[in-house]
Protein backbone atom coordinates (compact mmCIF):
# COMPACT_ATOMS: atom_id res chain seq x y z
CA UNK A 1 0.00 0.00 0.00
CA UNK A 2 1.54 3.21 -1.14
CA UNK A 3 1.41 6.20 1.17
CA UNK A 4 0.33 8.45 -1.72
CA UNK A 5 -2.40 7.46 -4.15
CA UNK A 6 -4.08 9.31 -6.99
CA UNK A 7 -7.69 8.34 -7.73
CA UNK A 8 -9.67 9.60 -10.65
CA UNK A 9 -13.44 9.93 -10.48
CA UNK A 10 -16.13 11.78 -12.36
CA UNK A 11 -15.80 14.40 -9.64
CA UNK A 12 -12.16 15.07 -10.60
CA UNK A 13 -9.08 13.62 -8.94
CA UNK A 14 -8.71 12.58 -5.35
CA UNK A 15 -5.38 12.51 -3.59
CA UNK A 16 -5.31 9.84 -0.89
CA UNK A 17 -2.59 10.42 1.69
CA UNK A 18 -1.50 7.98 4.35
CA UNK A 19 -2.34 9.20 7.86
CA UNK A 20 0.74 7.66 9.42
CA UNK A 21 3.27 9.41 7.19
CA UNK A 22 4.85 12.81 7.97
CA UNK A 23 3.71 15.69 5.76
CA UNK A 24 7.18 16.40 4.37
CA UNK A 25 7.57 12.79 3.27
CA UNK A 26 4.15 12.85 1.64
CA UNK A 27 4.99 16.08 -0.14
CA UNK A 28 8.07 14.56 -1.68
CA UNK A 29 6.30 11.31 -2.65
CA UNK A 30 3.37 13.19 -4.17
CA UNK A 31 5.74 15.24 -6.28
CA UNK A 32 7.34 12.07 -7.64
CA UNK A 33 4.04 10.34 -8.20
CA UNK A 34 2.52 13.21 -10.17
CA UNK A 35 5.65 13.55 -12.26
CA UNK A 36 5.42 9.86 -13.13
CA UNK A 37 1.75 10.02 -14.05
CA UNK A 38 1.84 13.41 -15.76
CA UNK A 39 1.45 11.88 -19.18
CA UNK A 40 -1.47 9.71 -18.10
CA UNK A 41 -3.28 12.57 -16.38
CA UNK A 42 -3.00 14.78 -19.43
CA UNK A 43 -3.84 18.46 -19.50
CA UNK A 44 -7.45 18.48 -18.24
CA UNK A 45 -9.10 21.14 -16.19
CA UNK A 46 -10.15 19.35 -13.07
CA UNK A 47 -11.13 19.56 -9.44
CA UNK A 48 -9.20 18.06 -6.56
CA UNK A 49 -10.16 16.63 -3.23
CA UNK A 50 -8.10 15.17 -0.41
CA UNK A 51 -8.59 12.00 1.58
CA UNK A 52 -6.74 10.46 4.47
CA UNK A 53 -4.31 12.71 6.36
CA UNK A 54 -5.75 15.99 7.50
CA UNK A 55 -4.00 18.90 5.81
CA UNK A 56 -4.01 22.57 6.75
CA UNK A 57 -5.12 25.10 4.14
CA UNK A 58 -1.51 26.09 3.48
CA UNK A 59 -0.49 22.47 3.01
CA UNK A 60 -3.35 21.96 0.56
CA UNK A 61 -2.25 25.01 -1.41
CA UNK A 62 1.23 23.64 -1.44
CA UNK A 63 0.02 20.28 -2.76
CA UNK A 64 -1.86 21.99 -5.59
CA UNK A 65 1.27 23.89 -6.44
CA UNK A 66 3.17 20.60 -6.59
CA UNK A 67 0.56 19.19 -8.96
CA UNK A 68 0.64 22.13 -11.32
CA UNK A 69 4.43 22.17 -11.32
CA UNK A 70 4.76 18.45 -12.07
CA UNK A 71 1.86 17.92 -14.49
CA UNK A 72 -0.08 19.67 -17.24
CA UNK A 73 -3.23 19.57 -15.08
CA UNK A 74 -5.04 22.75 -14.24
CA UNK A 75 -6.73 22.57 -10.88
CA UNK A 76 -9.86 24.73 -11.14
CA UNK A 77 -11.27 24.11 -7.72
CA UNK A 78 -10.77 22.29 -4.49
CA UNK A 79 -13.60 20.11 -3.17
CA UNK A 80 -14.50 18.81 0.22
CA UNK A 81 -14.51 15.07 0.19
CA UNK A 82 -17.79 15.40 2.10
CA UNK A 83 -21.18 14.33 0.70
CA UNK A 84 -22.43 17.88 0.37
CA UNK A 85 -19.50 18.88 -1.74
CA UNK A 86 -19.97 15.90 -3.98
CA UNK A 87 -23.64 16.63 -4.45
CA UNK A 88 -22.87 20.21 -5.43
CA UNK A 89 -20.28 19.03 -7.86
CA UNK A 90 -22.62 16.44 -9.33
CA UNK A 91 -25.24 19.16 -9.78
CA UNK A 92 -22.84 21.42 -11.58
CA UNK A 93 -21.70 18.57 -13.79
CA UNK A 94 -25.29 17.58 -14.56
CA UNK A 95 -26.20 21.11 -15.52
CA UNK A 96 -23.30 21.20 -17.92
CA UNK A 97 -24.27 17.78 -19.32
CA UNK A 98 -27.86 18.96 -19.74
CA UNK A 99 -26.67 21.75 -21.96
CA UNK A 100 -24.56 19.37 -23.96
CA UNK A 101 -27.17 16.63 -24.41
CA UNK A 102 -29.60 18.94 -26.17
CA UNK A 103 -27.64 18.13 -29.29
CA UNK A 104 -27.57 14.33 -28.84
CA UNK A 105 -30.71 12.29 -29.20
CA UNK A 106 -32.27 8.93 -28.58
CA UNK A 107 -34.26 7.67 -31.55
CA UNK A 108 -37.44 5.65 -31.07
CA UNK A 109 -39.36 3.98 -33.85
CA UNK A 110 -43.02 3.11 -33.33
CA UNK A 111 -46.22 4.53 -31.95
CA UNK A 112 -46.60 5.40 -28.29
CA UNK A 113 -50.01 4.54 -26.90
CA UNK A 114 -51.89 5.68 -23.84
CA UNK A 115 -50.06 4.75 -20.67
CA UNK A 116 -46.67 4.48 -22.35
CA UNK A 117 -43.97 7.04 -21.78
CA UNK A 118 -40.50 7.54 -23.10
CA UNK A 119 -37.80 9.27 -21.08
CA UNK A 120 -34.38 10.35 -22.17
CA UNK A 121 -31.50 12.22 -20.61
CA UNK A 122 -30.57 13.39 -24.07
CA UNK A 123 -32.83 14.58 -26.86
CA UNK A 124 -35.63 12.43 -28.20
CA UNK A 125 -36.68 11.67 -31.75
CA UNK A 126 -39.85 9.64 -32.28
CA UNK A 127 -40.63 8.13 -35.66
CA UNK A 128 -44.33 7.53 -35.12
CA UNK A 129 -47.37 8.92 -33.33
CA UNK A 130 -47.68 9.85 -29.69
CA UNK A 131 -51.29 9.15 -28.71
CA UNK A 132 -53.36 10.87 -26.00
CA UNK A 133 -52.30 9.57 -22.60
CA UNK A 134 -48.76 8.83 -23.78
CA UNK A 135 -45.88 11.05 -22.77
CA UNK A 136 -42.38 12.07 -23.81
CA UNK A 137 -39.91 13.41 -21.28
CA UNK A 138 -36.54 14.62 -22.45
CA UNK A 139 -33.81 16.71 -20.88
CA UNK A 140 -33.03 17.91 -24.36
CA UNK A 141 -35.14 18.59 -27.44
CA UNK A 142 -38.03 16.54 -28.77
CA UNK A 143 -38.76 15.85 -32.42
CA UNK A 144 -41.79 13.80 -33.44
CA UNK A 145 -42.15 12.68 -37.03
CA UNK A 146 -45.82 11.88 -36.67
CA UNK A 147 -48.74 13.22 -34.68
CA UNK A 148 -48.13 14.49 -31.18
CA UNK A 149 -51.49 14.02 -29.45
CA UNK A 150 -50.20 13.23 -25.97
CA UNK A 151 -47.88 15.23 -23.77
CA UNK A 152 -44.29 16.28 -24.40
CA UNK A 153 -41.82 17.74 -21.91
CA UNK A 154 -38.62 19.12 -23.39
CA UNK A 155 -35.82 20.51 -21.25
CA UNK A 156 -36.97 18.43 -18.28
CA UNK A 157 -33.69 19.24 -16.55
CA UNK A 158 -34.52 22.93 -16.64
CA UNK A 159 -32.97 23.98 -19.93
CA UNK A 160 -35.17 26.74 -21.30
CA UNK A 161 -33.56 26.66 -24.74
CA UNK A 162 -35.14 23.31 -25.56
CA UNK A 163 -37.89 22.94 -28.14
CA UNK A 164 -40.46 20.48 -29.48
CA UNK A 165 -40.89 19.95 -33.21
CA UNK A 166 -43.56 17.71 -34.73
CA UNK A 167 -45.07 17.09 -38.10
CA UNK A 168 -48.57 17.21 -36.61
CA UNK A 169 -48.81 19.40 -33.54
CA UNK A 170 -52.05 18.53 -31.67
CA UNK A 171 -50.73 17.91 -28.16
CA UNK A 172 -52.68 17.62 -24.93
CA UNK A 173 -49.90 19.48 -23.17
CA UNK A 174 -46.46 20.81 -23.95
CA UNK A 175 -43.94 21.52 -21.27
CA UNK A 176 -40.61 23.26 -21.75
CA UNK A 177 -38.39 23.47 -18.68
CA UNK A 178 -40.91 24.46 -15.96
CA UNK A 179 -43.49 26.14 -18.19
CA UNK A 180 -46.66 24.23 -19.12
CA UNK A 181 -49.06 24.99 -21.96
CA UNK A 182 -52.25 23.04 -22.59
CA UNK A 183 -54.27 22.68 -25.76
CA UNK A 184 -57.22 25.03 -26.24
CA UNK A 185 -60.60 23.62 -25.13
CA UNK A 186 -62.12 24.20 -28.53
CA UNK A 187 -59.91 23.17 -31.36
CA UNK A 188 -59.69 25.32 -34.44
CA UNK A 189 -60.78 23.07 -37.29
CA UNK A 190 -59.26 25.37 -39.89
CA UNK A 191 -55.82 24.82 -38.43
CA UNK A 192 -53.69 23.28 -41.18
CA UNK A 193 -51.53 20.27 -40.58
CA UNK A 194 -48.00 21.51 -40.82
CA UNK A 195 -44.61 21.01 -39.21
CA UNK A 196 -44.60 23.18 -36.13
CA UNK A 197 -42.22 24.07 -33.36
CA UNK A 198 -42.93 24.89 -29.73
CA UNK A 199 -40.36 26.96 -27.86
CA UNK A 200 -40.08 29.32 -24.95
CA UNK A 201 -40.21 33.02 -25.51
CA UNK A 202 -40.35 35.49 -22.62
CA UNK A 203 -41.55 32.84 -20.20
CA UNK A 204 -44.39 31.48 -22.30
CA UNK A 205 -44.63 28.69 -24.84
CA UNK A 206 -45.03 29.77 -28.45
CA UNK A 207 -46.11 27.42 -31.24
CA UNK A 208 -45.39 28.46 -34.80
CA UNK A 209 -44.73 26.93 -38.21
CA UNK A 210 -41.13 25.86 -38.62
CA UNK A 211 -39.62 28.56 -40.81
CA UNK A 212 -36.01 29.02 -41.92
CA UNK A 213 -35.65 32.04 -39.67
CA UNK A 214 -36.68 30.03 -36.63
CA UNK A 215 -34.35 27.14 -37.49
CA UNK A 216 -31.42 29.50 -37.83
CA UNK A 217 -32.24 31.00 -34.45
CA UNK A 218 -32.24 27.65 -32.63
CA UNK A 219 -29.59 27.01 -30.00
CA UNK A 220 -28.39 23.42 -29.98
Amino acid sequence: MSSVMIKGSKNGITLVLSETEEYDVLKEKAGKKFKESAKFLGNAKTAISFEGKKLTEEQKEEMIKIITENTELEIVCMLDSSEEGNAKFAQAVEKKINEMTAANARIYKGNLRSGQSLESDAGLIVLGDVNPGAGLISKGNIIVLGSLRGTAWAGAGGNENCFVICSDMVPMQIRIADIIARSPDHKDKKDVRDIKIAYLEKGSIVISPLSKEIISGLVL
Binding site: G115, G133, M172, Q173, I180, R182, D185
Partner: peptide, 17 residues
Protein backbone atom coordinates in the same frame (compact mmCIF):
# COMPACT_ATOMS: atom_id res chain seq x y z
CA UNK B 1 -55.07 3.81 -12.27
CA UNK B 2 -53.67 2.99 -15.69
CA UNK B 3 -57.03 3.31 -17.44
CA UNK B 4 -58.19 6.79 -16.60
CA UNK B 5 -61.32 8.12 -18.30
CA UNK B 6 -63.09 10.54 -16.01
CA UNK B 7 -60.86 13.38 -17.25
CA UNK B 8 -62.04 13.00 -20.86
CA UNK B 9 -65.69 12.58 -19.89
CA UNK B 10 -65.35 15.84 -17.93
CA UNK B 11 -63.44 17.49 -20.79
CA UNK B 12 -60.47 18.30 -18.54
CA UNK B 13 -57.85 15.96 -20.04
CA UNK B 14 -55.57 18.75 -21.23
CA UNK B 15 -55.12 20.25 -17.74
CA UNK B 16 -53.57 17.30 -15.97
CA UNK B 17 -50.15 17.99 -14.50
Amino acid sequence: IGLRNLDVVMGLENRIV
